[in-house]
Amino acid sequence: MFTGIIETLGRVEKLEKEGENLHLTLSSEITSELKIDQSVAHNGVCLTVVAIEGNNYTVTAIEETLLKTNLRDLKEGQHVNLERAMVLGARLDGHIVQGHVDQTASCISIEEKDGSWIFSFAYDSSLNNVTIEKGSITVDGVSLTVVDSKKDGFSVAIIPYTYEHTRFYSYKLGTTVNLEFDVIGKYVARLMENRS
């Protein structure tokens, strides 16, 4: 379980295919605090630490994860958003995030607004995921509030701190991002679907 509050950025040091799996080796300022078998969210994708060596650690993404997320597009030298699992009894500063990406979206607009930014994203609405105005959404693992909700898209407002300390600084038109829709909203949508 995560909160969507990014701790730091990790740098992709090595990508290694093994069959359908992809081993990702990253360096980060939190590596020394990690343990084997620990869950860490990478751009919002929950992956298990399988090896640690010096300042680097390795996680493995299976084929299904690669098909459903933007991890398949990573290149050596790129940054990813990192968050360790939440600690029971700590403050929940973001919202409840499972680390299970529902689908990807594409950045369709970036607008600078007096020191902040409005990012707009479009996604495939045929998968029946929904956003609501002022509801929560996770973009590449970042817990955000929906500003403008549409059937197949939404916008979010990004403050300078978030822009500088997450992957948002690198987004361009067409950038693919991972989305995890609000878990409570997903259960409500499923219940309503089952009633009709």
Rank of each mutant, 00 (worst) to 15 (best):
V188A: 04
L67N: 14
S27R: 10
A157V: 06
S126C: 13
V139Y: 04
V97R: 04
N81R: 07
S39Q: 11
R91G: 03
N128I: 00
V188C: 02
Y123R: 08
S39N: 13
V45F: 15
G10M: 02
S136P: 02
H165D: 03
G89S: 10
D93A: 10
Y187R: 09
A105P: 14
S136H: 06
F168K: 08
T138K: 01
V40I: 08
T8N: 08
V80G: 06
I132Y: 15
T166L: 08
L92H: 08
E33A: 12
E193V: 00
G77L: 12
L191Q: 10
S32T: 12
S120T: 12
M86G: 07
S196V: 04
I110G: 08
I118K: 06
A122N: 13
E193H: 05
K172E: 11
V45S: 11
V183E: 03
M1N: 09
S120Y: 04
T176L: 02
T166F: 05
K151R: 14
S27P: 04
I184G: 03
D73K: 08
L24H: 09
G153H: 09
T58N: 10
E64M: 10
E164Q: 14
H23Y: 15
G141A: 15
L9G: 12
V50S: 13
D37Y: 14
L26I: 12
L34C: 05
S120D: 09
T162L: 12
P160R: 00
R72E: 05
I108H: 15
S27D: 04
S143N: 12
M192L: 14
I158A: 03
D114R: 04
F119R: 04
S28R: 05
R195M: 08
I108Y: 14
T48F: 01
Q98Y: 15
D114S: 10
L191H: 10
V101Q: 04
E29A: 14
H100G: 13
E33T: 14
S28W: 07
T3C: 01
S27H: 07
E33R: 10
G185F: 04
R84H: 07
L47M: 05
L15R: 06
G10C: 03
Y161M: 05
C107H: 09
G4W: 00
L15F: 15
K151W: 01
V156D: 02
L9P: 14
E112A: 03
S125G: 14
A51I: 00
E111Q: 12
T60K: 07
F2P: 00
C107T: 11
L15H: 12
N178I: 00
M192P: 03
E112L: 01
I6A: 08
L179G: 01
R72T: 07
G4D: 05
I96Y: 05
F168P: 00
P160N: 02
T25F: 13
C107L: 09
A41M: 05
H79P: 02
